[in-house]
């Protein structure tokens, strides 16, 4: 079954049930139940996928939801994105609200307003958002810049730079989640080169440098150097090689 969009004209719907393909184009609604490959750039108001979808090209979706696995081989832009399962975007990912339970992989830069992840987030370049909430693991090959960052660690996380307003990193408690490569007994950890924010609260974090106005270094941390302006608290279960107060 092949469905093609009518670019420039009135927008129809694309509906693929079972197994099918399309050449992309402009649609009102795209609905995939089963397995579909879209060969070409696609622009739609809503994108729904139950099963497996691959867009060979770029995707713009006013809102996108996926239960299953979804892959975009170029950039993806749009409004809200909701994923249960797996989502991969090969280059830039620029959207509004993101909600993922499962796995999110971005090959390029990522920018969003509000992001909530249960599971795994991997971004291969810089990443920015107003609000980030993660329960699981984060891997960013660049700078993660967000106004509010809230990470609950389940498994190993890695970042180059973590910066923003309020940064909270906590170890997990209780039962391990079902997702991710989980090692029993591990509480999760974060490794970063530098962390900078106004209010920084860390647990189980390994970082060379932490800078902030109020810095709290909790249990399980190994920090090379802490620079703070107003307040610095260190848990007895943390190691900080050096700390300095700056300013008046």
């Amino acid at each position: 079954m092949v469905t093609n969009g009518n670019a420039g004209g009135s927008r129809g719907d694309m509906k693929i049930t079972g197994s099918g393909s399309s050449n992309g184009g402009a649609f009102n609604q795209v609905k995939i139940m089963g397995d579909a490959v879209i060969h070409g750039n696609t622009d739609c108001e809503t994108f729904k996928c139950l099963g497996n979808a691959e867009v060979k090209g770029s995707l713009y979706a006013g809102s996108a939801s996926c239960n299953g696995a979804m892959k975009v081989t170029d950039a993806m832009k749009g409004g809200t994105v909701k994923v249960h399962g797996e989502m991969r975007v090969a280059s830039e990912f620029a959207v509004g609200v993101v909600n993922v339970s499962g796995e999110l992989g971005v090959g390029g830069r990522m920018s969003a307003e509000k992001v909530k992840i249960m599971g795994e987030m991997r971004v291969n370049a810089d990443c920015q958002m107003e609000e980030l909430q993660v329960k699981g693991t984060v891997e960013v090959n660049g700078m993660l810049n967000a106004e509010r960052v809230d990470i609950k660690l389940y498994g190993p996380s890695r970042l180059r730079e973590l910066v923003g307003g309020q940064i909270t990193v906590k170890k997990s408690m209780g039962l391990p989640p079902l997702l991710g490569k989980f090692m029993p007994g591990s509480e999760g950890s974060l490794t970063a080169e530098s962390i900078e924010g106004d209010i920084v609260v860390l647990e189980n974090t390994k970082a060379a440098v932490v800078r902030g106005r109020n810095v709290t270094i909790g249990p399980g941390c190994r920090i090379g150097f802490v620079e703070y302006k107003d307040e610095f608290k260190q848990d007895s279960g943390a190691s900080v090689s050096q700390s300095a107060k700056i300013g008046p």
Binding site: N145, E147, V163, G164, G165, Q166, E196, G197, D198, R211
Partner: peptide
């Protein structure tokens, strides 16, 4: 200015 402001402006 604070780190938060600097990075907000960058964003």
């Amino acid at each position: 200015i604070s780190y938060g402001q600097l990075y907000r402006w960058k964003r």
